[in-house]
Amino acid sequence: MNRVKSLMIVGFILSACAHNPISNRSTSPSSHDGQQNVSQGCELTFTGDGWSLTHNQCSNVVDLHLQTASLTYHGQFPDQNLASFLRSEGCESPNQCAYKLIKLNSQTAVLRFEYMINLSEGHITFSLDDQGHSTVLEFKNQDSPS
């Protein structure tokens, strides 16, 4: 029962990846959580409070484009194994994916990608610098019991 409640809470917090546009809902006015609001084939767009991120998985490498009012970052998703998993399984409902903007300054953006796909859930926290380099800071994956 606690596992079901936990999954329901996680499901509420994470943005559901769907083909239909959804409104940008935040847990608080200063929230840095990104709701996915556009899915066009292999390109996903997430928006948050003052930022948007395009996750393009149309090729073998996942390209990221982070845009704020004053800064732009381009780079690659830092873990190609997870990128391949995302390409093959997708973020479409009932799967769930979300980005969170953790930290932003003129040289670096720190992002957290959270997912619940099939029986696997986890997150990867990484930095993306102004030169386009991405570095994994934390990675956690947990397969749910069937």
Score class of each variant (00 low, 15 high):
residue 35 Q to Y: 10
residue 4 V to W: 11
residue 5 K to F: 02
residue 6 S to M: 13
residue 18 A to E: 15
residue 13 I to D: 07
residue 29 P to K: 04
residue 42 C to W: 08
residue 38 V to S: 01
residue 25 R to M: 10
residue 26 S to F: 13
residue 35 Q to E: 14
residue 12 F to S: 15
residue 5 K to H: 06
residue 8 M to F: 04
residue 35 Q to A: 03
residue 27 T to N: 05
residue 35 Q to N: 13
residue 16 A to Q: 05
residue 40 Q to I: 00
residue 3 R to A: 11
residue 37 N to Q: 10
residue 14 L to S: 06
residue 37 N to P: 02
residue 31 S to I: 00
residue 16 A to R: 05
residue 36 Q to H: 10
residue 12 F to R: 14
residue 33 D to G: 00
residue 18 A to S: 09
residue 27 T to C: 02
residue 27 T to R: 03
residue 4 V to A: 14
residue 14 L to I: 15
residue 29 P to L: 08
residue 16 A to K: 04
residue 6 S to G: 05
residue 40 Q to R: 01
residue 46 F to P: 04
residue 22 I to Q: 15
residue 45 T to N: 01
residue 12 F to A: 15
residue 34 G to E: 15
residue 26 S to V: 12
residue 13 I to N: 06
residue 41 G to Y: 13
residue 25 R to E: 01
residue 21 P to G: 09
residue 9 I to H: 06
residue 7 L to I: 03
residue 22 I to R: 15
residue 26 S to W: 12
residue 31 S to A: 06
residue 39 S to C: 12
residue 43 E to L: 14
residue 5 K to M: 02
residue 41 G to I: 09
residue 45 T to P: 01
residue 36 Q to W: 09
residue 9 I to W: 12
residue 38 V to T: 09
residue 25 R to I: 07
residue 13 I to F: 05
residue 27 T to M: 09
residue 6 S to C: 02
residue 10 V to T: 02
residue 18 A to W: 06
residue 23 S to A: 12
residue 12 F to Q: 14
residue 33 D to N: 09
residue 6 S to V: 13
residue 30 S to M: 03
residue 10 V to A: 13
residue 30 S to E: 08
residue 43 E to V: 15
residue 3 R to S: 10
residue 38 V to Q: 03
residue 14 L to D: 10
residue 45 T to S: 09
residue 25 R to K: 05
residue 20 N to A: 11
residue 42 C to F: 13
residue 5 K to S: 03
residue 10 V to P: 01
residue 13 I to C: 10
residue 34 G to D: 08
residue 17 C to M: 06
residue 5 K to G: 09
residue 24 N to G: 11
residue 31 S to N: 05
residue 36 Q to D: 00
residue 3 R to P: 02
residue 32 H to V: 02
residue 25 R to D: 08
residue 15 S to E: 11
residue 10 V to S: 13
residue 20 N to D: 07
residue 46 F to G: 05
residue 42 C to Y: 12
residue 19 H to D: 08
